[in-house]
Amino acid sequence: MNIIPTNIPDVLIIEPKVFSDSRGFFFEAYNAHDFAQQTGVTAHFVQDNHSRSVKGVLRGLHYQVENTQGKLVRVIHGEIRDIAVDVRKSSPTFGQWVAVHLSADNYRQLWIPPGFAHGFSVMSESAEFLYKTTDYYNPGADRCIRWDDAQLAIDWQLDEPPVLSDKDKLGVPFSEAQLLP
């Protein structure tokens, strides 16, 4: 696997080694030993999630104030623009964000450590998104920051207003969000 740093050192792009021929392809999506050795991150994943969304859907920016989750995310169908925002007040990259293009064609994965809000927008007709988490979903600790927060000024590269869930429509401004220490 190839590890590509982002402008936030804790967030990493992971490119697996893909073996392809006329029959199709094969790649190792996750190997705990190799992941730890090459990233320096020892993650214990406890939950796998799978979502499907249609073009124009934007999900996020979500995080938990308790049971913070590290996420290893990838797309198995379609393409998305994936966003990670550092919500750790003590971090030198607090309030900064990373955007990565993930698709079924580029096989890339993104490691988002605990302490980041996460969201994505669907760029293709539909997309299926898989992610592993390092802690369980805790509805009482779940928080949402507005996707279009002026202070964060995230470039979602949208052609039209996104399709949002009721939860995402109620996201709070970054300046009012309950953030992590």
Rank of each mutant, 00 (worst) to 15 (best):
W97S: 15
Q37F: 03
Q96H: 13
R52C: 14
G95F: 14
D48W: 00
L72Q: 07
A43S: 12
V46D: 02
V73N: 01
A43H: 07
V73Y: 07
A99D: 08
G40M: 11
K55F: 09
G95E: 11
Q96I: 04
K89F: 01
F94H: 15
V65I: 15
A84H: 08
V46L: 07
H50G: 04
V46Y: 03
N67T: 03
H62V: 10
H77T: 12
L61R: 05
S90H: 13
A84Q: 05
T39D: 04
V54Q: 13
Q37N: 10
K89M: 13
V41R: 13
I76M: 13
Q96F: 06
G95W: 07
R88L: 10
T93M: 06
D48L: 14
F45I: 01
R59N: 08
A43G: 09
Q69Y: 02
I76R: 12
V75G: 00
V75H: 01
Q38D: 06
Q47G: 11
N49W: 02
I83Y: 03
H62K: 02
K55Q: 15
G95T: 12
W97Y: 15
S53W: 01
V85S: 11
F45A: 05
R88N: 12
R81L: 14
L61V: 04
D82C: 07
R74N: 06
G56D: 11
T42F: 09
T39V: 04
Y63M: 04
H44F: 04
R81A: 11
I76K: 06
Q38K: 15
T42W: 07
W97N: 12
